[in-house]
Design a protein around this nucleic acid. Structure first.
Length: 458
RNA sequence: GGCGGGUUAGCAAAGAGGUUAUGCAGCGGAUUGCAAAUCCGUUUAGAACGGUUCGAUUCCGUUACCCGCCUCCA
C-alpha cells in the first residue's frame, strides 16, 4: 500500500504524492521558547518524528524545517495583553534573549532524550524580521491590510476563502466573539505587525515601514516557510489547536501574498490529556521530561506510550499507563537483545506488513502489535532481530544499540550476595533466605542463574 | 452560542459487518530449594435505547455523558 495521510484540508485520507519526485518539503510549527516544553507539547513533536521516519522509510528525502518562536506572541485577548517573552523575562530576571536561548537548549535536550530526529533546518523568528516585513509588504501590496492605532491588520473580510481549513463559521464566530474587537474590523482579523506602545521600552522591537514594533504571531511561519520551502510545499504540521487560528491565518497570509494555500497536506497531532483535561502551561504545574527522569522513567517509555495511540486521537496520560509502557519497552529491549548477534536480512513479508500499517496514516499502534506478533513467530532468531531493527527505524526506540545496564554493585552488597550464593550452593536454604532478606534491606534483589547470580536494584 | 471529536474489558489503546488486536495488570501451568526472570495457556469488552442486516461493538438515528477548538496554546 502506498503512503496515505490524513489531510485536515480535505478532512480525508489522501494518497501522498510529493510535489518533487523523491523529496518532501515539511514545515512543523516549533515551540515558543518562553518556558520549558511539557510532555503534551512533546507528543506533537513525537508525531512529527513518526511522520518523518515513515517518509524516510518510503525512500523520501525529507527537508524538514522547524521554527523557534523567540519573539513573544501575546499572552491573551486577541492581540492584546503582555508579551510572553517579556513576561518570561520578568519572571526569571533574565533578558528575553537569554531565556530564549535557555529554553531553546532545553527543548533540544528534550528532543534528544525522546530520540526525536532534529529538523534539517532550524529557524528563529528574530533572525527573520526582514523576511517577515517584506512578506507583510507583499500582503499590503495586494490590498489586504489596514492600520489601526496599535498595528497593521489583515482584513479577512476581503478573502472569501478565509477559514476553510478550520471550516470556520464566520457568522457564528462574530456572534460568539469572546473578546472585544477593539479597532479590528472583523472578529477574524489578525495582526501582521504590532506597534510598541509609546511609553513601553521593549527588549525585542524593530523598525518597520509602519513604525517601531514587532511582528504578529502568524507571520513568522508564513515568512520562514516561504523562505526555506517556497510558495507551495508538501506537508505542514502542528497541534490540533492550530487548525482554527494559527494555520488558518498562515494560509490566509500566503494566499494573499502568493496565491497558494502554503502546503499541499495539513496534518495535526492531537492533545495529550491528563485527568481527561488538556495539559496546559497556564494551569500552573505541568509535566516535563525532566520530571519523568527524576521519577525514574526512561524518556523513551513516554515515546512508547505515545506510539500505542494513534496520533489523531487524544491520549489520556496517567502514571499507570506510563508504568505499563516502561515495562513493555523494557521487555521488548531485553527480547531483542536476547536474540543474539547472528547476521540475517529482515523478513520481507513482515517488513511489507509493517509498511502497510505505517503507510495507513501512521498506524503505529498496529505496527507495534505486529512487532509482538513477529516476536512470537517461529522465524529464526537472527531474522527476527534484523526485522525488529528494521521496524525500529520507524519506532525510534534505539533497539539496535540497547544493552542491559551494567549496575555498579557496592562492595558490601557484593559480599552479602557472594555469601548467599555460597549458602545456596551448600543447600543451606535458611541462611540463603536470611541473606536474601538482608540484600532486600539494602535495596537489592538477587536472581539465581544457572552458573551465576544477577543483582538488580529494588 | 458556533464548530469538531470521543464513550471498547482492571488500565492504556487498535483494526474489522461474521474469524486472537496488542501491551500492562490478573489467573492457571511449566520452571525454581523458595523466588525472580522467562515460557505456555487463559478470564474480564465496545455508554443507553431504537433501526438496517441472516448477523453489529463495527453502518444509521436518538439520548446521556466526556473532551477539544472558537483566546496564548502542541
Amino acid at each position: 500500500m502506498s503512503l496515505h495521510l490524513y489531510d485536515t484540508w480535505t478532512r480525508s485520507l489522501r494518497e501522498f504524492t510529493p510535489l518533487k519526485a523523491g523529496e518532501v518539503g515539511l514545515y512543523t510549527c516549533g515551540p515558543t521558547v518562553y518556558n520549558y516544553a511539557h510532555i503534551g507539547n512533546l507528543r506533537t513533536y513525537l508525531f512529527e518524528d513518526g511522520l518523518t521516519r515513515v517518509l524516510r522509510l518510503n525512500g523520501y528525502q525529507v527537508n524538514h524545517v522547524m521554527n523557534i518562536t523567540d519573539v513573544g506572541h501575546l499572552v491573551s485577548d486577541a492581540d492584546e495583553g503582555e508579551d510572553k517573552m517579556e513576561a518570561g523575562s520578568r519572571r526569571t530576571g533574565q533578558t528575553a534573549w537569554t531565556i530564549a536561548a535557555l529554553y531553546t537548549d532545553a527543548f533540544r535536550a528534550d528532543l534528544k532524550a525522546l530520540n526525536i530526529v532534529e529538523p534539517t533546518t532550524w529557524c528563529k523568528a528574530t533572525d527573520h524580521i526582514a523576511e517577515q516585513i517584506s512578506f507583510i509588504q507583499e500582503i499590503e501590496k495586494k490590498g489586504y491590510t489596514y492600520k489601526t492605532s496599535d498595528g497593521v491588520y489583515f482584513d479577512t473580510s476581503k478573502q472569501s476563502s478565509y477559514g476553510y481549513l478550520g471550516r470556520l463559521d464566520i457568522e457564528g464566530l462574530q456572534g460568539g466573539a469572546r473578546v472585544d474587537l477593539g479597532e479590528k474590523r472583523n472578529a477574524t482579523d489578525y495582526a501582521l505587525w504590532k506597534f510598541s506602545a509609546p511609553e513601553e521600552k521593549r527588549q525585542m522591537e524593530w523598525d518597520s515601514p509602519w513604525g517601531r514594533g514587532f511582528p504578529g504571531w502568524h507571520i513568522e511561519c508564513s515568512a520562514m516557510a516561504h523562505k526555506y520551502l517556497g510558495e507551495y510545499f508538501d506537508i505542514h504540521c502542528g497541534g490540533e489547536d492550530h487548525i482554527t487560528v494559527h494555520h488558518t491565518n498562515e494560509i490566509s497570509q500566503t494566499e494573499a501574498a502568493y496565491g497558494t494555500r502554503l502546503s499541499n497536506y495539513w496534518m495535526h497531532g492531537y492533545f495529550l490529556l491528563t485527568n481527561d483535561a488538556k495539559m496546559s502551561k497556564s494551569a500552573g504545574e505541568f509535566l516535563r521530561v525532566q520530571l519523568l527522569i527524576d521519577k525514574g522513567y526512561d524518556p523513551i517509555s513516554y515515546r512508547y506510550l505515545c506510539l500505542t495511540a494513534h496520533y489523531r486521537s487524544q491520549l489520556n496520560f496517567s502514571w499507570e499507563a506510563l508504568d505499563a509502557a516502561q515495562t513493555a519497552l523494557g521487555r521488548l529491549r531485553q527480547n531483542v537483545f536476547s536474540l543474539g548477534e547472528g547476521a540475517a536480512k529482515p523478513n520481507a513479508e513482515y517488513v511489507a506488513k509493517f509498511m502497510e500499517k505505517l503507510n495507513d496514516d501512521l498506524n503505529f499502534p498496529q505496527a507495534l502489535a505486529l512487532a509482538y506478533e513477529l516476536l512470537k513467530s517461529d522465524l529464526p532468531a537472527a531474522e527476527k532481530k534484523a526485522t525488529l531493527i528494521k521496524f525500529d527505524e520507524g519506532f525510534g526506540f534505539g533497539l539496535a544499540s540497547w544493552v542491559p545496564k551494567e549496575v555498579e554493585v557496592p562492595a558490601n552488597v557484593r559480599a552479602v550476595a557472594d555469601a548467599r550464593w555460597a549458602a545456596r550452593n551448600a543447600k543451606d536454604w535458611a541462611e540463603a533466605d536470611r541473606l536474601r532478606g538482608e540484600l532486600a534491606a539494602l535495596g537489592w534483589a538477587m536472581k539465581d542463574g544457572k552458573d551465576a547470580y544477577t543483582l538488580s536494584k529494588l
